[in-house]
Design a protein around this nucleic acid. Structure first.
Lengths: 164, 164
DNA sequence: CAATATATGTCAACGTGACTGACGTAAAGA
DNA sequence: TCTTTACGTCAGTCACGTTGACATATATTG
């Protein structure tokens, strides 16, 4: 399918532009995970641990179900990683008071340190890109990424996970 | 580390904004891979196959080394996936004429069909996001993502892989 | 030409992080 | 009381990455 028959599209909707948009996301994500990977290796952890630590840091007291919903993985898959984080003292689980079936998730002091070590290089990378691109570009970056997400107005576009 | 002591930063460099930038990338990438995954399943392929097919489609005649450089994986890792694609008739390898040690990569007709089926939903998703965000936002999206990549002026920001 | 370097492939072993399916328990809710 | 929900666990499987060692053909260089 070429552009020829697509009629009067704005330039930024040409096929080539779209494929560039796809590849940019691939490259950015590829390089984005580099920095924390080095830190994780020190601990013998992987990216899965990173994700858990990150989202628990952002949403202290979140339930297991909420975490699963964000990560879009199965509980069996989460259990190994979460179990290790608990066992090694990075995460604690406390029974919910409102609903005592829930095991609400919190980082320990150590966990918060790890979270900071993981986030810091990523924040630096984003800050560098933001600075280089300017405020308007940042606004566009956010708009487009938000539009790429399944629910265009995903919670995270405007803050941490919404609680029920 | 709070913002308090960071002095006169533009608003878009506040800690909270940076973390949002990080998470947006996570969510977008997560949802971005959904669409092609369904197609891949029909063929019994995985994301690794997708990546190979995509980049060979974009760069017909690229060398194995070039592909490895883009994917940032080992040749042993590539070999399984590439072998399957060749065996099942999606990719062909031809000896380079300039350097006969090289096995240059091309898609077959079937391979191009698969590539199109995989790319199409992603292009639609990007087009939707672009349309919703507007031309200026697209410009910003590109600027920021390019800045996130290790080499800020990565080849793909302005076209296919550069050949030697 | 001989020696070395490069491009690619292959065998083998291993680790992480996903998956499905089945089953168990405690607590909430109808 | 009965059913549903939140969570955990056991077991098996698969995709896809890794390291390390070695093989082959071709290119390049002294």
């Amino acid at each position: 399918m070429t552009d020829v028959k697509t009629g009067p599209n704005p330039l930024f909707l040409r096929d080539e532009e779209l494929v560039q948009g796809i590849e940019l996301l691939f490259y950015a994500y590829r390089d984005f995970t580099e920095d924390p990977d080095a830190v994780l290796e020190e601990y013998g952890f992987g990216r899965a641990h990173h994700r858990v630590v990150h989202f628990v840091a952002r949403n202290p007291g979140m339930s297991v179900a909420e975490l699963l919903e964000i990560l879009r993985i199965t509980k069996q898959s989460l259990s190994r990683v979460l179990g290790q984080l608990v066992e090694r003292g990075f995460v604690v689980q406390r029974k919910g008071t409102r609903d005592r079936r829930q095991r609400l998730l919190y980082l320990t002091e150590t966990g918060r340190d790890l979270a900071e070590r993981l986030t810091e290089p990523q924040k630096r990378r984003v800050a560098r890109a933001y600075r280089g691109a300017g405020a308007d570009a940042v606004e566009g970056y956010r708009k487009v990424l938000t539009g790429l997400i399944d629910d265009g107005r995903h919670e995270t576009a405007s803050g941490p996970v919404r609680r029920r």
